[in-house]
C-alpha cells in the first residue's frame, strides 16, 4: 500500500466509503435500540421520534433487570443454548461428513428427503411437536427445549458444503495411512474447517438464545423460562413500555457480543496468516 497509482488510491477510497456507509446502514437499528433504551417513557412515544434522548435514563436498565427473575432466566438460557449448540455441532459434523465424503446406498434419496423437510414452514409442525413432547412427558424439562433442536438441516448442509471443498486427495492419503474415518473427521476435517464450525456455533447459539415460542410452549414454571420471556413482561394488550423492552434487549445482546468477540479470534486466524504479507 505504498506508492500506488491514482486509480488504486481511488479504489481504496471507494472501498472504505462502501464499507463505512454499509456499516452505518446495517448498524442503524442497533444504535436505535441502544438510544431508545435510554429514553424516558414519554419521549419514546413522540412523533416524529427524537434520535438522541434529551435525558439519558440509565435507570431503565435497573428497572428492566428488577422486573423479572433475570438471573434464573440467564442461567437457563446459557445452559440450553450451550448444550444445544454443542449437541447440534456434533450431530451436524457427523451427518455432514456422511453426505460430503461417504458413499452409501440411498444417499441421494436420503439427502433429498433431508432437504425436503426444510420446505414446510415450522409453524405447521409446532402443535404436533408439542403433543409429542407432552406424550414423552417432557413438558417443563430442559430436554423439551433442547432435544428437538439437536438436528439441524441448515447446519448439516452448510458444513457438508465446506467439507466437500476439502480436496479429495487428503481423504485418500489418510485412507492410505490407515486413518479411520472418524479419526480423519476429527483430526483433519474439523480443524481444517474451524472457521465454518465456529460460524455454525455462533449461529446456533444466537438462534437458541433468542428462541421464544417453543420454550414458552413447553414450559410452565418460571424456573424453566428463558431470557426472551422476560421481554414479554413489559407489554400488555393496551400498549407497552418500549424503553424497558429496549433496555432488556440490550442486556440480552451483551453476552452474545462478548462470545462473538471471543470466538472472532478463531475465525480470524486464517486471515492473520495472509494478512501479514500485505
Amino acid at each position: 500500500m505504498k506508492s500506488r497509482k491514482p486509480t488504486a488510491i481511488i479504489a481504496e477510497i471507494v472501498k472504505y466509503v462502501i464499507l463505512i456507509a454499509g456499516a452505518l446502514f446495517t448498524l442503524l437499528p442497533f444504535v436505535w435500540m441502544v438510544l431508545s433504551s435510554l429514553k424516558s417513557g414519554s419521549e419514546i412515544v413522540a412523533i416524529p421520534p427524537t434520535i438522541i434522548p434529551t435525558h439519558f435514563m440509565f435507570s431503565n436498565y435497573a428497572e428492566a433487570w428488577a422486573a423479572a427473575p433475570f438471573p434464573r432466566y440467564f442461567l437457563n438460557t446459557v445452559f440450553v443454548a450451550t448444550v444445544t449448540t454443542v449437541g447440534v455441532l456434533l450431530t451436524s459434523i457427523l451427518a455432514a461428513f456422511a453426505f460430503a465424503r461417504l458413499d452409501f446406498p440411498g444417499k441421494k434419496i436420503v439427502f433429498s428427503l433431508f432437504m425436503a423437510t426444510l420446505m414446510i414452514p415450522g409453524e405447521m409442525l409446532l402443535i404436533t411437536n408439542f403433543v409429542t413432547v407432552t406424550k414423552l412427558k417432557w413438558v417443563d424439562t430442559y430436554k423439551a427445549m433442547i432435544v428437538p433442536w439437536l438436528a439441524n438441516v441448515f447446519y448439516t448442509y452448510l458444513l457438508s458444503q465446506f467439507f466437500s471443498s476439502v480436496p479429495e486427495a487428503l481423504y485418500l492419503a489418510a485412507k492410505v495411512d490407515k486413518c479411520s474415518d472418524l479419526k480423519f473427521l476429527f483430526k483433519i476435517m474439523v480443524p481444517m474447517n474451524k472457521n465454518a464450525i465456529t460460524t455454525v456455533a455462533i449461529l446456533s447459539f444466537i438462534g437458541s438464545w433468542n428462541s421464544f415460542l417453543w420454550p414458552l410452549l413447553v414450559t410452565n414454571s418460571t424456573n424453566m423460562r428463558v431470557l426472551s420471556h422476560g421481554l414479554v413482561r413489559f407489554q400488555s394488550e393496551a400498549g407497552a413500555q418500549y424503553q424497558l423492552i429496549m433496555a432488556a434487549s440490550c442486556i440480552l445482546v451483551v453476552p452474545i457480543v462478548i462470545i462473538y468477540l471471543f470466538l472472532r479470534k478463531y475465525i480470524l486466524e486464517g486471515m492473520a496468516y495472509t494478512g501479514v504479507k500485505g
Binding site: S40, G41, S42, I44, V45, P49, L231, V232, F234, Q235, A238, G239, A240, Q241, Y242, Q243, L244, I245
Partner: peptide
C-alpha cells in the same frame, strides 16, 4: 411486542 413502536412508561 415483537415489532411495535409503542407507548409510555
Amino acid at each position: 411486542m415483537a415489532t411495535v413502536m409503542g407507548a409510555s412508561l
